[in-house]
């Protein structure tokens, strides 16, 4: 029989509290979301009667379906734009040596460190000038500020590793640079692209300050703002049941995504910070 080490004991002691601490809030949110009316204010953990009233309420009081769609559109748009632009830049920064490359890389990374509030008023003017106020395009543009640098950085790390021979062969065959990037390298970069797409998607989905400031009408809001501003049937009510239901609706797909693509996400995160 294997000798039980001290570290094993520590391990088994640590697992339950860690699991509990990590999962309890979300499980409680799920339980609360199925409680109806005053059952929320009782001290039972699980609802005595399971009710979908809160879920119905979420969609009744605000255009939540529209909000979900908006979030998908914004996050998807941001990812698509980021990837396109970043692939081009990453190729140049990762595989061509030119003067100023290092500085450029650092500048691009530095941009992701800007505090959002520092560019809030300037961005507001730009967006008003372009007539994009209260439209989803405003968010697609502004979210690029943190997805673009991150995507460039990670793609550069992976681009560097790709074999030179493939590139040279294609160029000799007369292929243009764009073909090299999109037809030859992109398929090889698939894991990296998947990772950064996911992380960028989650970051854009989560984004709050710009969404709060640049959209006004309920139909244009994205999910985080919609949840933060959920109100009940009177202007003072805070319907906790509805808020929990909305939280569950928004989080389950995200958790599913994260769990399925665990390994990609981890590799993406670590490539940015630990490697390079």
């Amino acid at each position: 029989m294997k000798r039980i080490e001290f570290t094993d004991v520590l391990y088994w002691l640590a697992v339950p509290p860690v699991l509990g601490f990590a999962l309890f809030p979300f499980v409680y949110a799920i339980a609360s979301s199925f409680k109806q009316g005053n059952a929320l204010f009782s001290s039972d953990f699980w609802p005595k009667t399971w009710s979908l009233a809160n879920y119905a309420g979420v969609f009744a009081e605000q255009p939540f379906g529209q909000n979900l769609l908006n979030s998908v559109l914004v996050a998807g748009g941001v990812v698509a734009l980021s990837l396109t632009v970043s692939l081009l830049a990453a190729y140049a920064l990762g595989r061509v040596s030119f003067r100023g490359r290092g500085v450029l890389m650092m500048t691009i990374l530095g941009v992701s460190m800007f505090p959002q509030v520092a560019i809030l008023s300037g961005l507001f003017e730009l967006i008003s000038a372009l007539g994009l106020y209260d439209s989803l395009w405003a968010l697609v543009l502004s979210d690029l500020i943190f997805t673009l640098p991150f995507t460039v950085w990670v793609l550069v790390t992976f681009m560097r590793e790709l074999p030179k021979e493939l590139e040279e062969a294609a160029l000799m065959d007369g292929a243009g640079v764009l073909t090299v990037i999109f037809r030859i390298f992109l398929p090889l970069l698939w894991p990296a692209v998947a990772a950064t797409s996911l992380l960028a998607f989650i970051a854009a989905w989560n984004e709050f300050l710009f969404a709060l400031t640049f959209t006004l009408s309920g139909e244009q809001r994205t999910v985080p703002v919609a949840i933060a501003l959920i109100s009940g049937a009177s202007s003072y009510e805070l319907p906790w049941g509805n808020i929990m239901a909305a939280s569950v609706i928004v989080t389950l797909p995200l958790i599913a995504l994260v769990l399925i693509f665990q390994r990609h996400i981890v590799s993406g995160l670590t490539a940015g910070a630990v490697k390079g």
Partner: peptide, 21 residues
């Protein structure tokens, strides 16, 4: 009928943005 935020602070911010421009 145009939809506006329910929270007073947010509604005021909205009006200020619209009127200010």
């Amino acid at each position: 009928v145009v939809a506006t935020p329910n929270d007073s602070n947010e509604r005021l911010a909205l009006y200020q943005q619209i009127l200010g421009s």
